[in-house]
Design a protein around this nucleic acid. Structure first.
Length: 469
RNA sequence: GCUCCCAUCGUCUAGAGGCCUAGGACACAGCCCUCUCAAGGCUGGUACGAGGGUUCGAAUCCCUCUGGGAGCGCCA
């Protein structure tokens, strides 16, 4: 039997890393087993579902490369099907109409809480469901009143729920619209889902869903309830730490594979390995290796993994991501080859693409001012000699390539009996405006001869001007 | 309150009775390398929530407690 997994987010909030991780696990599981990954948008809550949230889900999955083999399906487009099953339930006696009012229900709940009991529907209409004038009934599922449901969870193991703990849940509102737990059951059945991988906040819903599935004569899928992700402070994930749209990570300059790598290691591991390619994840992931406890989101480690993946990525691919980052800084880089060359010089020293872009602006724009501290230290009278000599050596260079530039810089240092730093640092400040850049030879090569000489000359003038008379 | 889940360094984790005076990674500190920043290498500190069992032997099995989380909606 083909493995079929699904990711079923509701577009009521932004897709955040918690959702992405369950999506990832489902996707990986399907890939690992040569199965099918289904995307289903659970938008039955018309009040709270938004177009924007749906779009973020679609765009986010696209950016991450978690492509759906089937879907996206929308629950709002399956209403006819839900009504059909509702009728089926009513006819078979698995469900009944309930005429209790909201007020009565609330009073009941209050009484139960008062008596320190678990709030639940008492089954009034289950015994005798009599229509009441002016009241549109809801439909409730007739949950078995005795026995127990065994949830065989791939992660948590066997969890037993007594049916007496469960009450008759509402499966259709008084306006006739079906509710979440019911839609999930119908959809998972219709879409022939074999493995439900979702957050363990749903573990408590599972026995009800299994009961409904059984009432429909369907075989329940396998379940894997993955632990939740907590904020960096160990508290519930909130906007402060990571409950932001996944697309924000894209905009901040994270590589999709880095975010995915970070997320897969939350609750899952494969020996001591930390860095995984997507292929490795898909080959190695299994729900049986997922642990049971919640884990806290650690931005530092995500940053580190991002850097690791930036180091491993091809310059050409980095160039693609770098382009919009530079654009955001007002730099339009049309030359892809140059962009890739820049990415290559920077890929070992940037934690994000955004940072890489910031540190690469000088390749395009001549620095208008020098970093104060850097200039004070390096663009002094002492720098005049090395800058002038290297300027003349570079002017006469045959081919403009890193190895020759390297020699020119080295020779300058030797001839003036200076340390390399006394030559390289002034050049660095001259061309980049700051004390930090990639190695000076490749920096100058990528920058080009004209820009290099122009900037060196300008620095020489600067040194002269500031020379104490 | 009731039901269910969870519990190893600050954080992510390895660990399925002896290999554990608990391993790796992030972060942190120091050193090395070095034209800057990084990357890389080396070194260092810090953890089995508590108490009872079972066993020759427990981080690993059982129980209790404590702590954390989830669910109990005409939300999903």
């Amino acid at each position: 039997m083909t493995v079929r997994t699904r990711f079923a987010p509701s577009p009521t909030g932004m897709l955040h890393i918690g959702g992405v991780r369950t999506a990832l696990f489902s996707w990986l599981y399907a890939k690992r087993h040569g199965g099918v990954f289904v995307l289903r948008i659970e938008d039955t809550d018309r009040e709270r579902s938004t177009e924007e949230a749906t779009q973020v889900i679609l765009d986010g999955m696209e950016w991450l490369g978690l492509r759906a083999d089937e879907g996206p399906f929308y629950q709002t487009r399956r209403m006819d099907r839900y009504r059909e099953v509702l009728d089926q339930f009513l006819q078979s006696g698995h469900a009944y109409r309930c005429y209790c009012t909201r007020e009565e229900l609330e009073a009941m709940r209050a009484r139960q809480i008062e008596a320190k009991q678990k709030p639940r529907y008492d089954g009034t209409c289950r015994a005798h469901s009599t229509p009441r004038a002016g009241i549109d009934p809801v439909i409730r599922f007739k949950n078995p009143s005795d026995g127990a449901v065994l949830v065989e969870d791939e992660i948590h193991g066997n969890v037993l729920f007594e049916n007496v703990e469960l009450d008759d849940l509402i499966i259709a509102r008084s306006d006739g619209s079906p509710t979440y737990n019911f839609c999930v059951v119908v959809d998972d059945m219709d879409m022939r889902i074999t493995h439900v991988i979702r957050g363990d906040d749903h573990l408590n819903n599972t026995p009800r869903q299994i009961n409904m599935l059984k009432a429909l004569g369907a075989t329940p899928p396998k379940y894997a309830h993955v632990p939740m992700i907590l904020g960096a402070d160990g508290a519930k994930l909130s906007k402060r730490h990571g409950a932001v749209s996944v697309l924000q990570y894209r905009d901040e300059g994270y590589l999709p594979e880095a975010l995915l790598n970070y997320l897969v290691r939350l609750g899952w591991s494969h020996g001591d390995q930390e860095v995984f390619t997507l292929d490795e994840m898909a080959r190695l992931f299994d729900t049986s290796d997922v642990n049971k406890s919640a884990s806290a989101f650690n931005p530092d480690k995500l940053l580190w993994l991002n850097q690791q993946h930036i180091m491993r990525a091809t310059p050409e691919r980095l160039a693609e991501y770098l382009k919009p980052q530079l654009a955001a800084l007002g730099v339009s880089a049309a030359n892809d080859a140059q962009l890739a060359a820049i990415a290559k010089t920077q890929q070992e020293r940037a934690k994000t693409l955004k940072e890489m872009a910031q540190n690469s602006v000088f390749f395009f724009n001549e620095p208008q001012t020098y970093d104060e501290k850097a200039a004070k230290k390096n663009l002094t009278a002492d720098a005049l000699a090395p800058l002038s000599l290297v300027h003349s050596k570079l002017s006469g260079l045959g081919d403009w390539q890193a190895s020759l530039i390297h020699n020119a810089v080295n020779d300058t240092a030797t001839e003036l009996s200076l340390g390399l730093g006394k030559v390289a640092q002034p050049i660095r400040v001259a061309v980049s405006g700051t004390a930090v850049s990639p190695p000076i030879d490749v920096t100058l090569e990528v920058l080009g001869r004209d820009a290099t000489l122009r900037r060196l000359q300008r620095a020489i003038d600067y040194c002269r001007a500031s020379k104490p008379s």
